[in-house]
Structure formats: C-alpha cells, structure tokens
C-alpha cells in the first residue's frame, strides 16, 4: 500500500470528523503508518454537509487533500451525491443503504452497503452509526488493522459508552464478514 485516500461524508452531528480522526489515529499511532487528516465543513454548526478525509501512506504524506478517493464512506444522500463521482475506478464505496436511496451507476467501483443507522438504532443509540460504518469499512476496505481501529474507538469514546461502541464496531465488522463470505 503506497497511498490510501479515504473520504468520509455525511451531515454535521453524525461524527464524520471523529470517524476520520479514529481512522487516522489507528493508522498513524498504532499501525505505524503516516496519516494526515483534513476536514471541510460549512459555517453551519450542525446539520450542514460535512466531510472529512484521511490520507494513509507508508511514506510521508506530501499531498494531504483528497481530490480523488480510494475509499468513500457515505452516510448521507448529499454526501454520496457530492463525492461518488470522485471515487477512483476500482475504488471502494461503503454506504448506508437506508440513508442513501438514490443510487448512481456503481459499475466503475466496488460498492458495499450496510444499514449502519438501523443497526445503531437496534443497539439503542443512533449516534453510533458512524462506528458501525467504521467497523464495516475496516473489514471491507482494509485501510487500518482491526486491532488498531478497535483500540482507537475505545480510546476516543467516553468510558461509559465503551461497551456500546465496541458492540457497534463489531456488528459493523461482522456485517462485513457476512457480506464477504
């Protein structure tokens, strides 16, 4: 792996920035790679379109922005619409198929769906949908190791929500296992 460019998109309040932070921290601090995370947001504090991006590399990251992505995680229709065009040929799309209903042609790349928000609701907290998605994407896109990702998730969330987030991560990861096999 020379460079992996990951784009995460959704709306404000879904933990889009935190998700990228977890990916970057897992890759750079625990997997020993170089990772550079940047963010873009509108002036709205909540609810606006939101995206974050991480570049993971074995060497120093010179170019930190993600113009074309290798991996796109889409947690909203708007985020999907905005960024699916810049997913490279042969890239991987992970999307929440309850939130992204209007689909474009997926033949250029590999598309994998998960009802992340519905799974999160089943677990009792809609807010962990991003962690379900991260678990799923860890298995599907392989940008960081399972151990590093799980460790970072547990570090990044408040102590009393650790169990919930651990379950969310594993549900997402295992959902991926089911899809793969």
């Amino acid at each position: 792996m020379e460079n992996k460019r990951i784009k995460i998109s959704g709306f404000g309040g879904q933990g889009i920035i935190l998700s990228a932070h977890i990916v970057g921290q897992a890759a750079s601090i625990y997997d020993g790679k170089n990772a550079s995370m940047t963010q873009a947001y509108g002036p709205e504090a909540r609810g606006g379109a939101c995206s974050s991006q991480v570049v993971i590399s074995d060497t120093e990251v010179d170019y930190p922005l993600v113009d074309t992505s290798d991996v796109l995680l889409a947690l909203s229709q708007e985020g999907y619409d905005k960024f699916v065009g810049s997913l490279r040929d042969g890239g991987i799309l992970c999307y929440d198929n309850d939130l992204v209903g209007v689909l474009q042609d997926h033949s250029r790349f590999d598309a994998r769906a998960i009802p992340a928000t519905r799974i999160a609701e089943e677990l009792g907290k809609k807010i962990v949908a991003n962690i379900v998605m991260l678990g799923f994407a860890t298995r599907q896109a392989g940008f960081a190791s399972y151990d590093a990702m799980k460790r970072t998730v547990l570090e990044r969330v408040p102590p009393k929500f650790r169990d919930l987030n651990e379950t969310a991560f594993e549900r997402g990861y295992n959902y991926g296992e089911e899809v793969q096999t």
């Binding site: 970057g24 750079s28 170089n34 990772a35 550079s36 995370m37 940047t38 963010q39 990251v61 930190p64």
Partner: peptide, 9 residues
C-alpha cells in the same frame, strides 16, 4: 487553515 486544521502524528 490547512495545516491548522490538519491532524497528524
């Protein structure tokens, strides 16, 4: 703003 808002090790 890129470097200020960029997160790295």
């Amino acid at each position: 703003a890129i470097v200020g808002h960029m997160t790295e090790k």
